[in-house]
């Protein structure tokens, strides 16, 4: 039996252990993660730049803009967030373009854990509530954005948000542990948080694992962290919290998509990718769509496999969208702020 057949046949945890050839210790994980081919930074960036030079015009652009809206996690993650702010955000999520009822809705709203009840309430019947139809509520958890808290606190943070009705949990990895080589600790934490995502009925909230690539610094680290997060059971890998610069970049996202492609090749399982932070224009968003479609395939351009973590992106897409219909640009006062 080849390793890929083996990997596809086994249950996720057993599969991981089979791939590692033992328990998820620092040493076993290190051997596995450091055995993955490296990344040549110059070549990766060149490839990303090439993908960014695709010319998406006319009907393709229209499709790209609509697709982008449907992939957005509309986000507010401020210390100053209030119930009113979250209601306003939800209003925007439900009606992105007040002048166009046909405008697609965003995929989810993303808020801090304590704002989840307000988001759920404001969404009302439009709340996806784990069904896949409607708008999902994503909560950042595990002492977001730094992740500097005890495991118990992180798990409580997660369970709390899930209990309040969060459909998706955006956790942060312990970058300190990762950078000091304690891969086992990072792995165990992701496994534990995934467990905390379980609801009473046995289903579980989708887990997005934030790698905070700006702190990992090298593409090799990004690649290893991506593998680690997937091995530990993450449903999505996400670039950044948005609180650290640089946040999402095209080369970083490309390198993560390559991991997702290789994992699919190995196991047949599809993992999602979410670039977050710093994607503000339609032009940038389209570069990401091209990169996704040409790296893992266009079936990834669905909300359960690809998301943009963004706030200001939506209005730029709407302006572009209006321009495509009317033939001229309007201005920031012709789209609503949330």
């Amino acid at each position: 039996m080849t390793s890929s057949q083996l990997a596809a046949r086994l249950a996720p945890r057993d599969r991981t252990l089979a791939l590692l050839g033992g328990e998820a210790t620092d040493a076993n994980l290190r051997r596995y993660l450091h055995g993955i081919p490296g990344i040549d930074a110059v070549g990766l960036e060149q490839r990303a730049a090439d993908l960014g030079s695709r010319s998406i015009k006319t009907t393709s652009k229209k499709l790209a803009l609509d697709t982008t809206i449907g992939l957005i996690d509309l986000t507010t993650l401020e210390g100053a967030d209030t119930r009113g702010k979250v209601r306003s955000l939800v209003g925007k999520a439900l009606t992105p373009d007040a002048g166009d009822p046909d405008c697609p809705r965003v995929a989810a709203v993303c808020v801090y854990g304590d704002m989840v009840p307000h988001a759920v309430e404001a969404l009302g019947s439009a709340h996806a509530a784990g069904t896949g139809n409607g708008i999902a509520v994503a909560a950042v958890a595990t002492a977001f954005p730094s992740g500097r808290a005890s495991l118990a606190v992180k798990l409580a943070d997660t369970a709390d948000a899930v209990a309040a009705g969060a459909d998706e949990i955006d956790m942060v990895i312990d970058r300190g542990a990762f950078l000091s080589g304690h891969y086992g600790r990072v792995f165990d934490e992701i496994v534990a948080v995934k467990e905390a995502c379980r609801r009473q009925d046995g289903s579980h909230a989708h887990l997005k694992v934030i790698l905070e690539t700006g702190e990992l610094n090298t593409y090799d680290n990004v690649r290893r962290a991506s593998w680690l997060a997937i091995l530990a059971g993450g449903d999505f890998i996400k670039t950044s919290t948005g609180k650290v610069a640089p946040a999402a970049t095209l080369p970083v996202t490309l390198s993560m998509l390559e991991v997702v492609r290789d994992w699919h090749r190995l196991t047949g399982e599809k993992i999602g990718v979410k670039p977050a932070g710093g994607i503000r224009t339609s032009k940038d968003a389209i570069k990401y769509l091209v990169t996704v479609a040409e790296t893992v395939g266009e079936e990834w351009l669905q909300p359960h496999l690809f998301r943009f973590g963004a706030s200001s992106l939506l209005n730029d897409v709407l302006l572009q969208r209006q321009k495509m219909t009317t033939g001229h640009y309007s201005g920031p006062d012709y789209v609503t702020i949330d």
Binding site: R54, S55, I56, T59, S60, A64, L289, A293, E298
Partner: peptide
């Protein structure tokens, strides 16, 4: 329409 069928951009 598929996304990867890029419209002509001559």
């Amino acid at each position: 329409m598929n996304f990867l069928d890029y419209a002509p951009a001559p």
